[in-house]
Simulated scan of single mutants.
Amino acid sequence: MKELNDYSTTDVQTVTQDGKYILFFSATWCPDCKFIEPFMPEIEADYPDYQFVHVDRDQFLDLAKELGIMGIPSFVAFDRGQEIGRFVNKDRKTKAEVENFINSLN
């Protein structure tokens, strides 16, 4: 999974302008983020139409605020720079819940 740091900009519209993306917001101290992290490689492999980008919520706090990310882990989907869905709350997320969210985007 790429990191937002891997891009030359943190402007979400620019980063996500050329395809389908899912931004995965988390933080190193977050136990619910640690719970879903082991499943992320499988989820990525199951959804090759999407490019997954990890966003460290603490490092990019202004972006999280701009996008209304109050709880983590959270997922925000984009298609060619436009938000198409979000799975944003403070609850622990299971692999099945994340997959259901991605399936609902199609």
Rank of each mutant, 00 (worst) to 15 (best):
M1I: 12
E3T: 06
E3Y: 04
L4P: 03
Y7G: 01
S8Y: 10
T10V: 11
T10G: 06
D11I: 14
D11P: 08
T16H: 05
T16G: 01
T16E: 00
Q17Y: 00
Y21V: 11
I22V: 15
I22K: 12
F24I: 06
F25A: 01
F25W: 02
S26D: 07
S26G: 05
A27C: 02
P31W: 07
P31L: 02
F35R: 12
P38K: 04
P38T: 01
P38D: 00
E42N: 08
E44D: 01
D46P: 15
P48F: 13
V53H: 03
V53A: 04
V55R: 06
D56P: 01
R57P: 01
D58Y: 01
F60Y: 15
D62M: 09
D62Y: 07
A64D: 01
K65L: 15
E66F: 11
G68N: 12
G68V: 12
G68T: 09
I69N: 09
I69A: 10
G71M: 00
S74Q: 04
S74V: 01
S74D: 03
A77R: 04
A77Y: 08
F78E: 08
D79K: 10
R80F: 10
R80V: 08
E83V: 13
E83S: 13
I84Q: 10
F87D: 05
F87K: 09
N89P: 01
K90L: 07
K90R: 13
R92E: 11
R92Y: 05
K93W: 06
K95S: 08
E97H: 04
N100F: 02
N100A: 09
F101C: 07
S104D: 11
L105I: 07
